[in-house]
Design a protein around this nucleic acid. Structure first.
Length: 839
DNA sequence: AGCACGCCGACT
DNA sequence: GTCGGCGTGCTC
């Protein structure tokens, strides 16, 4: 008996770890066990990317999550096909973070993986065709037509062909039927060729042949040789201007990019001649897509207020993981960040600075770049796949010790974070809601920092009430800067009464007399004006003036949004679009008009009222492409625009001394936000927009157009009394059970059949009511938008007690409930979407 | 989520 | 007779 155990023990210890649990980017709530072939066993590591077959057809990139030696009981494990990384692309800390995120945000680890890995690190597979070696044309029972023969002929010269190749060979668009027929006749084989998506950037470089570069006489001889050949001479001079081979001989090694060398109109043929004559040589070089830049500037000296804040932050960090820096707009938070970042980098740790997406293209990034140069990586949503992979690999290799990025940059492979800064901490865009994981980047970043034993600094001029609450509870340290940097004073607020003006007939194209006067005044003094329009929950649409018909989406219960620049109607929920009809589809009338006031309409109105002013508009439409945003900013900064009309994005990072007037076109819209955060959001928006006004020597003017000037929210904003506002709001939230006093979970039930969706939502409601946790379950209610993409939806809101293990008990119970409901035949195709901490 | 397998209607 | 509709079950 004993010896048998001993043998088994011996076997287990020495049989090696021949199985791996692998995270795959699929929405199935578990890892998958694969067999590690003998030849890979010594090199396998957690976090490596591997290739596996999944199901019958799919080839996927997976991440090794766990290595062990327990063969699965119920099935035979498939083998790992290949290992993609020598060094893991993902570190164990990240895997812990993924696991946490999947649990907390109630999603599958595969979904987290999918969100975390840049798609360039996943594989692409392309179908290729190959000649079937067993095929013999002579003995084949099936005759081939000429097109099929052409393909086979091509395969005699080339080992493999892609679909595209075949299309070119035959000059047809749809190649699939022909290939299918060839497969049926067993003439060819189709297989999947798996490739890394990421491709290094390769430049053609030109350099002086070393013998010439080292020898003045040789160079002299070359110059004599090109005499009377001005084109060649010009290239040679250009090269020596950029690469002074005798002063800086090392520069010649990497030479000059061919495109740069020829960019001043020099011809390629002249260069070819020079290469042929042995003057230059051409070679290939792998280069970084993200350019190297040396720091140009020192960090600025801090003012005494800033210095004091910095010291205070550091003191808090001695005892607290997180600190809230509450600094009014213009208080110079960036400079404080810079000092802190420098200190952490010098200590050898990494730093992550999170910014909301629209703030990332602005001055703050170029300011940071000036100080930190090429050790700083930028992680953008507008970056290409290849660029993202370079940032990822740059963090892995240590090239980037500091990253500035959007919410998804929390997934980068940091291994020793010392500090995470979340700027504009209150921004709702930090919450991801469309595909799972529905995470809040601020909260996730705090957890990430905790895993790294790093510090977190939350910065905002208008902190979210959750964060401020944590500060008042002593959970976060709290540092306040209540003065603007330099001399700038706080702006002056005016409420412009829309109703009163309308009655007195003073309204012109929806603008009040007060707003017009302030604009006029600013224009006369060569000052700039910003007009803000909140677009949330509201967009311009087209309506028939005769019958009242309005264009609606075919798949969703919403009206279509009018986009002037493309003369199109679009659905903001599913992306459906159509041309604006000439006549009303319902009654045939041609009296179609645009309703509602988008930024486009405001721009139009203002240019009618101020024909001499130069207008600019900044919204999703005008900034869609990579440089649209920057171009507008540059024009505005250069004073080429007098009035800038824009949505949320103008509240971010604009810092121009010539803006003295900020107009809020429709203040009421800001008030009517349909949830418990309405007041908080209104306060934040107005304060943020107002922060753009009057930053240097001139006092800013903020004009809010409203029908409800008596609303006390305006009064609180005008008094700038964040604390009083917070206090009152907390009173209500406690009374009505809202965060931060409870934890919210929103569950959406979706189905194509209204009745089924309703029934499923109610079934869920009843099941949840039985869970043994302290909670309040609201709903189910018909979604604010009843139907999206042809799916009807119902929403339930659960308020969980924050104490103890309520959350984990609830989530476990919820998993079981959903599993059971999903197995009811009727609810088979019902979709449930769970959103933890919804916006 | 895909994708294959399987069982019932309108077409060559 | 077949192509193809989408219900349902599975993926190591």
């Amino acid at each position: 008996m004993e010896s048998l155990f001993a043998d088994q023990d011996f076997l287990e210890k020495n049989s090696g770890n021949n199985f791996a649990d692998i995270i795959l980017p699929v929405p199935i709530p578990r890892m998958f066990t694969y067999r590690i072939p003998k030849n890979f066993q010594s090199e396998i590591q957690i976090g490596q990317r591997v290739i596996v077959q999944f199901g019958k057809k799919k080839i996927l990139t997976g991440i090794i999550g766990k290595v062990h030696n327990k063969p699965p009981q119920a099935y035979e494990a498939k083998p790992i096909l290949d290992i993609l990384d020598v060094q893991p692309s993902v570190n164990p800390l990240q895997i812990r973070f993924w696991v946490w995120m999947a649990e907390y945000y109630f999603c599958h680890i595969g979904e987290v993986m999918f969100a975390a890995l840049p798609s360039g690190l996943r594989l692409s597979s392309e179908s290729k065709i190959q000649a079937n070696p067993n095929f013999d044309l002579e003995s084949s029972p099936y005759p081939l037509d000429t097109r099929e023969e052409l393909i086979l002929e091509a395969l005699e010269n080339q080992n493999e062909l892609s679909y595209e190749d075949c299309e070119k060979i035959l000059g047809v668009k749809t190649i699939h039927p022909i290939l299918k027929s060839l497969v049926a006749k067993e003439a060819i084989l189709i297989f999947e060729k798996v490739q890394e998506k990421y491709t290094p950037k390769v430049e053609t470089r030109i350099r002086l042949v070393p013998a010439i570069a080292k020898d003045k006489n040789a160079l002299q001889a070359v110059f004599e040789a090109v005499q009377g050949k001005p084109k060649q001479e010009s290239i040679l001079l250009k090269y020596l201007r950029d690469i002074p081979v005798f002063n800086k001989p090392h520069l010649n090694e990497k030479g000059l990019d061919k495109a740069t060398l020829l960019e001043e109109g020099d011809s390629e043929s002249s260069l070819k001649t020079l290469i042929k004559n042995g003057v230059f040589e051409s070679f290939k070089l792998v280069v970084n897509r993200i350019e190297e830049e040396e720091p140009e500037r020192e960090a600025s000296a801090l003012s005494s207020t800033q210095q004091a804040a910095l010291e205070e932050i550091k003191t808090h960090f001695e005892t607290k993981q997180s600190v809230l820096l509450h600094g009014v707009t213009g208080s110079g938070k960036t400079e404080i960040y810079i000092k802190l970042i420098q200190e952490v980098l010098e200590s050898g740790s990494q730093v992550l600075l999170l910014l909301p997406e629209i703030a990332l293209t602005t001055q703050i990034v170029s300011r940071l770049k000036q100080v930190f140069g090429s050790q700083m990586g930028v992680y953008h949503s507008k970056y290409s796949d290849n660029e993202r992979v370079e940032v990822w690999n740059g963090v892995l290799s240590g090239r980037f010790t500091f990253v500035v990025g959007v919410r998804s940059s929390i997934f980068l492979p940091f291994d020793s974070l010392g500090l995470v800064i979340i700027d504009e901490e209150h921004e709702p865009s930090y919450k991801q809601f469309d595909p799972a994981p529905r995470f809040h980047a601020r909260d996730a970043a705090i957890m990430l920092a905790y895993f790294h034993q790093a510090r977190t600094l939350l910065g905002s001029a208008t902190p979210s009430f959750e964060t401020y609450f944590n500060a008042t509870q002593g959970k976060y340290g709290y540092v306040q800067i209540s003065h603007r940097f330099g001399e700038a004073s706080m702006p002056e607020y005016h409420l412009a009464n829309l109703s009163a003006d309308r009655k007195k007939n003073l309204l012109k194209l929806d603008s009040t007399r007060l707003l017009r006067e302030k604009i006029q005044n600013a224009l006369e003094n060569q000052q700039q004006i910003i007009i803000f329009q909140n677009r949330r929950g509201y967009s311009p649409y087209v309506q028939c003036e005769d019958c009242g018909w309005a264009a609606e989406c075919v798949q969703c219960d919403v009206s279509l949004t009018y986009h002037q620049f493309a003369e199109e109607l679009r659905c903001h929920y599913c992306g459906y679009k159509e041309k604006v009809p000439q006549t009303c589809p319902a009654c045939g009338s041609s009296q179609l008009s645009t309703q509602g006031m988008g930024t486009e309409r405001i721009e139009e109105s203002l240019s009618l009222l101020f024909p001499e002013a130069r207008m600019g508009r900044m919204d999703l439409d005008t900034t869609r492409n990579k440089y649209g945003y920057q171009r507008l900013l540059d024009e505005f900064a250069a004073g080429q625009i007098d009035i800038l009309v824009g949505t949320q994005m103008i509240t971010k990072g604009l810092d121009f001394g010539k803006v003295t007037v900020v107009g809020i076109w429709d203040g009421d819209r800001i008030l009517n936000f349909p949830d418990f955060r309405a007041g908080e959001r209104a306060y934040q928006q107005i304060t943020q927009v107002a922060g753009r006004a009057g930053r240097r020597d001139i006092k800013g003017q903020v004009i809010i157009q409203t029908r409800n000037p008596e609303n006390d929210l305006f009064e609180k904003v005008i008094r700038g009394d964040y604390f009083e506002f917070f206090r009152q709001e907390m009173f209500d939230r406690k009374k009505f059970f809202y965060p931060p006093f409870v934890k919210l979970v929103k569950i959406t039930t979706r189905h194509t059949d209204f009745k089924v969706a309703e029934k499923a939502a109610h079934a869920l409601h009843h099941q949840m009511a039985n869970l043994p946790v302290k909670k309040i379950v609201l709903g189910p209610e018909k979604g604010i938008i009843a139907r999206i993409k042809n799916q009807y939806q119902f929403e339930s809101l659960i308020k969980l007690d924050k104490a103890g293990n309520t959350q984990s008990v609830f989530k476990e119970g919820l998993s079981k409930i959903l599993e059971e409901l999903q197995s009811v035949p009727e609810f088979r195709s019902v979709r449930w979407i769970v959103d933890v901490d919804p916006n």
